[in-house]
Design a protein around this nucleic acid. Structure first.
Lengths: 168, 168
DNA sequence: TTGGAATGTCAACAAAGCTGACGTATTGTG
DNA sequence: CACAATACGTCAGCTTTGTTGACATTCCAA
């Protein structure tokens, strides 16, 4: 039966075979490890972890964001985020200011110190990303982004698109 | 200066801007969460974790693999892997047999029970992958794979390619 | 003024990684 | 043969990062 189907499929559907899907799964696993390796090395020296990196990244990306908003972007519990945020505030990397309109909210910003670490981390991560982009070329990059977007949950895609194409 | 460079770049290098690279970084973050979400839900019910999934996946993929080989694929310490492997063996999902040629080695196989869980997990993960592939199309999938491969560490790429295009 | 939303904090716990040390087979080598 | 190296397992202890649940505070809005 499998032999009978194969020739009918044509090559247009060959990328949907179990084997191709499994290779995609493995590619995600191995690539994600590379993706986090460089920042992880920097973070380990400063006794921070990936959770700190994520908080710093998205605070940089959305300056003045509230704790609740950051919570829904990161998809963790407030207790988990709070622990990370507390150390970043204590260490002077993040500033937390009471909201003007709604004083319950805290608005988060990177301090100059925090911005420096953000730059160090994202430089390292972008170096690898740049090398991968350059090696693969623009067409591959477009496909890469398309597949990743299609892989996201609706909520994640919403956050992702909300941050799309911001001016630097 | 930035304004001066922009027109000279041409659109062929537009995918290497900081903004594009940052979007790639965020796409990886959000997509990876989606990528693991479905198996995670199944695993949580059975009180297993992602580490168990990874072990099961690669034992399925390379039946009879040794502990050492699995170790280098997964990139964790033997203590960490051992904890996971022990529960899988105790629960009857994985069989460990003494090597014939080298009796120090243990060869790992999935039992029928282990194979059933593997199928359940990979079905869930492949469903999402298939949907993403279908939505993005064959050309995008090729680019996706290219970029991910370029993002891997050399050692990871080696493992990845060693498992390439196995017959099912 | 009272209910609910946003925030913060305490405690307890689990998954999954790490280091270091040690024991036991087994194998390869001088 | 003797000894070093390899493969594996295990004990103990620690870290990061996630989870629940409970509870207090502050503040907005009906």
């Amino acid at each position: 039966m499998a032999e009978g189907l194969q020739p009918q499929m044509g090559q247009s559907l060959l990328f949907l075979t179990d084997e191709q899907l499994r290779k995609g799964i493995e590619a995600m696993f191995f690539a994600y490890r590379g993706f986090t390796a460089d920042p992880d090395r920097i973070l380990a020296q400063k006794s921070y972890g990936r959770a700190h990196h994520r908080a710093i990244h998205f605070i940089h990306r959305s300056p003045g964001t509230t704790v609740n908003n950051l919570l829904s972007i990161l998809g963790v519990t407030k207790q988990s985020l709070n622990r990370v945020l507390r150390t970043l505030i204590e260490d002077g990397l993040v500033a937390s200011t009471v909201g003007k309109k709604d004083k319950r909210e805290r608005h988060l910003h990177l301090t100059p110190l925090g911005a420096a670490l953000e730059r160090e981390l994202s430089d390292a991560q972008r170096d690898r990303m740049r090398a991968a982009y350059r090696a693969a070329g623009p067409a591959a990059v477009a496909g890469f982004r398309q597949v990743l977007e299609a892989m996201m949950d609706d909520e994640a895609r919403h956050h992702y698109e909300a941050m799309k194409d911001r001016p630097e």
